[in-house]
Design a protein around this nucleic acid. Sequence first.
DNA 1: TTGTAAGCGTTATCAC
DNA 2: GTGATAACGCTTACAA
Lengths: 344, 344
Amino acid sequence: MSRNKATVSIRDVAAAAGVSIATVSRVLSPASAEIRMRQETRDRVVRAIEDLGYRPNDLARALLQQRTSAIGLVLPDISNPYYPPLVRGVEDVASAHGYRVVLCNTDREPDKTAAYLDTLVKTRVDGVIVAGGSLADLPGRELVFETYRTKLVMVGRHGLTQPSVQVDNVAATRVATEYLLGLGHRRIAFVGGPMDSSTAQDRLIGHQQALRKAGVPDSGQDAVRVGDFDERSGYEATRSLLDGEARTAVLCANDRMALGAYAALADAGLSVPGDVSVVGFDDVPMASFVRPTLTTIAVPTYEMGQAAMRLLLEMFNGASGNEPVLMPTRLVVRGSCAPPAAGG
Amino acid sequence: MSRNKATVSIRDVAAAAGVSIATVSRVLSPASAEIRMRQETRDRVVRAIEDLGYRPNDLARALLQQRTSAIGLVLPDISNPYYPPLVRGVEDVASAHGYRVVLCNTDREPDKTAAYLDTLVKTRVDGVIVAGGSLADLPGRELVFETYRTKLVMVGRHGLTQPSVQVDNVAATRVATEYLLGLGHRRIAFVGGPMDSSTAQDRLIGHQQALRKAGVPDSGQDAVRVGDFDERSGYEATRSLLDGEARTAVLCANDRMALGAYAALADAGLSVPGDVSVVGFDDVPMASFVRPTLTTIAVPTYEMGQAAMRLLLEMFNGASGNEPVLMPTRLVVRGSCAPPAAGG
DNA sequence: TTGTAAGCGTTATCAC
DNA sequence: GTGATAACGCTTACAA
């Protein structure tokens, strides 16, 4: 180990092995095996590397090669149970291909979002995946991304010119609503998400389309509540619905709110699905562990994360990414729905 | 913009503003305000920066300054609901201090762990926070960390020589068990975690200490089941308990398993807390939204994340980190416990 | 007040 | 088969 230097670098290895730094670099090169060099030299170098505990500096390598093998993953809040599987999907594919992921929680705040995006381009990540978030949280970043050749993939939105991985939310709630209609429900409430979320918008649209198509009068705003995707808001939305006209079913824009609805109904002395049927959205792990088990729309979150990262990898290889990747949803029928009680 | 260069660099800005790169660097310097320079020069530079959409390359800066402002966060699996708040705690403090966090999910696999740790030192992160994980997943990394001055903080373990943030798991389950004993329970089952987890070990120890202290015969291995911290294992452990001697209460080593226990008890036609009392551990958000609400031991996960990152920051400033940070737990009494039924 | 140049730790292009 | 050396994009003495 050298005396006055902070850490051990390729120079120290070269000195220890009695070779030049170029030779050390060759041993470390990915194409190392194909490079012809004397076996004894190679051994000396390997030996020195191990003795010194040398680890090549990826910063220097990145600076030279103009690629960092890092990507940014920007999302509203990892504490929302919807995101962890998505994050795993991204990370599993990323690490399998030698990329590391920098996590950025924005809380949907424009300031935080802007700050994170700035950090990401300054650290020259090769790409960024943006999941969730409202429609307008990328204030004029396109130019900078362009300048620094930072590839961008969006997850869970649509109508954008960006490469993206999407879910057909409209079709999903249409199917769920048709299922409830098929059971005989006519007075169906909807607990939606914040209206600045395109996901929330689409889920409401699908619901309303199904009602319209079936000729069931949309009972207007009284049947719709806006939550913010967490348990508490689902609880409160459901309580407030209980004060209005009687409903025999409630369709929630995500599972967390559906679980809140469970609690509100239990507290009101109503049984699920005896008095009220409940449908969720996402199929989080808890959905199969609550009682009654929750009928819900499964979103392949993990696979979406994988798809997003794969799309990014393709773009690194020159693909345009212009073709949006569309992921399927699936109605998972469990125990929280039944035909409406007679006279309901 | 230059012709043959990939992106815009400090040189392009200097050229556009008609100054040297040193001058541009000064404008960008953190101490920029204190640096005396002609206002007109400064304006020209700022102007050029904006025109070109220039973002300084943090790789180059890091290489020179020998610090990356990045840290690694290593944990078993972000999909485990225990971790997201911890991650937020880490990230919120990190980003407030200009650090970014690289997420590493190890699944407790030694290979993945080793690979991630290697990547982290190669990218020269300033520090690493390791949460969860079994006792032996840092095979001889100390040396390399030492070599590259990578600071290390452990979360949720003890008995280590490393700087750490800890919870007194032993005391926590002792308190919980004493609570059940106080309600009159004598036949208490324990659903624990994997025995290679020190956390799981400690939680069992606290439970047994309380039983011993109260002179309640430890009913032996028949009263103890080993799960792996997820809902399914809690479900199965509880089912298997139901086949043995009757129990009036079950203490679970985390909330997810407690929720699994809820499902198993419901499926067996047993009511909570009428027939069986249940206690969890962690106080995840769902704990207050299941019915009955779950009595549990609250772990300040978010605060632990904050504390871990703060400890790391102190170590960057020269602190030894030798004093372990101990975080308090708290029994949160909700609706899942009652005195044992007469004759239970 | 501003410019020149060395150097951070690599890889890649030439020589030898 | 191996060694100099010029980049990569920046910061920071030291000169001017």
